[in-house]
Design a protein around this nucleic acid. Structure first.
Length: 332
DNA sequence: AAAGCTCCCCGCCATA
DNA sequence: CTTATGGCGGGGAGCT
């Protein structure tokens, strides 16, 4: 009646909680869309560990493992998450390495996130192959396992049924790539949109990134100005105008702004506009020029420059990467 | 392509 | 004396 695809998220003490949650959410959101579309395919996502029961993460959060690894019944896919201190984790969980080596040939897909790649490496699954990991431990991986061709610049790398991926958000990208491979691009895009929506902060003006949110300040005047900026990207947001709005001299305004926000006013304005621009770029129905203008940039060229400066890619490339959820231009 | 222009940031000092 | 504010001017980035 229904095709069920089992995906185990493999955890161990002090795993990175943030990495486990992303892929988990991707598959569960996919299930919601599958149910809505009355498709006969479901993901059966479980938390797996050496022993069943709660597994403490790197934060106060624990995840309840409902699947024990050393059973004969293997999942279709397994995703092993990273740890903050991978060398310690590796030393504490040699059984996980053994399991990886034994299970790998029979898994349809076996993926590591971030420093989880070290388990695959220790199991010699990556010898002679390309692989990636979080940039901060890429050199360590290459040094410890010289037979591996480490490519630190990739979001993720696929070699046969073995996948390795970079940092936290890469886990989401990787899970989306799985969904895309299983169910097609349309559904993967739906889920990607859900995730963006979910990551938006609840409430009023702040559908913006944590980066901007983190610049927020307790100084009420500056905060009002920041809110005004976010709500009115197409207005004149010059220092002169904003200082007048704050009823301060330009000198004092720039000084207080930097003290409270940690970045200059111009920098904040540019980031705000860029965040808005990226949201618009994520929607392929919006022309580049319209995205630029609606975000408050002078013209496409302005957006292009800022995009190049802050992301190192052009708006079109950003749009393409967003649209493909990474699979076609990153892994293949 | 270059020089000039505009806007912005910030050190320094003065003022309240 | 400390703290918040404002004016001035140099230096720099980006645009024309």
């Amino acid at each position: 009646m229904q095709e069920v695809r089992r995906v185990d998220i493999v955890v161990y003490p002090n795993f990175k909680s943030l990495e486990a949650i992303g892929p988990l959410s991707v598959f569960e959101y996919a299930n919601i869309h599958l149910a809505r579309l009355q498709r006969k395919f479901r993901y059966d996502v479980r938390i797996a560990a050496l022993q069943a029961g709660p597994v403490r993460s790197d934060t106060v959060m624990s995840l309840e493992a409902t699947r024990e690894l050393n059973t004969l019944d293997l999942p279709h896919d397994a995703i092993i998450v990273g740890a903050r201190d991978i060398e310690t984790a590796l030393a504490q969980c040699p059984e996980l390495v053994h399991w990886s080596r034994a299970a790998a040939p029979r898994l349809k897909r076996f993926a590591s996130l971030c420093s989880g790649a070290f388990f695959l490496a220790a199991a010699q699954l990556l010898d002679g192959k390309r692989a990636t990991t979080h940039w901060s431990v890429a050199a360590l991986l290459a040094g410890s396992f010289p037979k591996i061709d480490v490519e630190p610049d990739n979001i993720f790398v696929q070699e046969g049924n073995i996948w390795t991926s970079a940092g936290v958000t890469a886990g989401i990208d990787l899970a989306l790539a799985f969904v895309e491979a299983d169910l097609g691009r349309e559904l993967a895009l739906e889920v990607a949109r859900d995730m963006v929506v979910y990551l938006k902060r609840p409430g009023g003006q702040s559908q913006f990134s944590n980066l901007l949110v983190s610049q927020r300040t307790s100084h009420s005047t500056i905060q009002e100005i920041q809110d005004w900026i976010l709500a009115h990207p197409t207005e004149d947001l010059s220092v002169t105008v904003l200082a007048a709005r704050a009823a301060m001299s330009v000198r004092n305004f720039t000084r207080v702004f930097r003290k409270e926000a940690g970045i200059s006013c111009l920098d904040y304005v540019e980031r705000a506009r860029f965040e808005i621009g990226l949201q618009l770029l994520a929607n392929p129905a919006v022309p580049l020029k319209a995205a630029a203008l609606q975000a408050g940039f002078r013209d496409q060229e302005h957006l292009r420059r800022v995009c190049q400066k802050r992301l190192g890619i052009t708006p079109m490339v950003y749009r393409q990467r967003f649209a493909t959820t990474g699979v076609s231009n990153q892994a293949l």
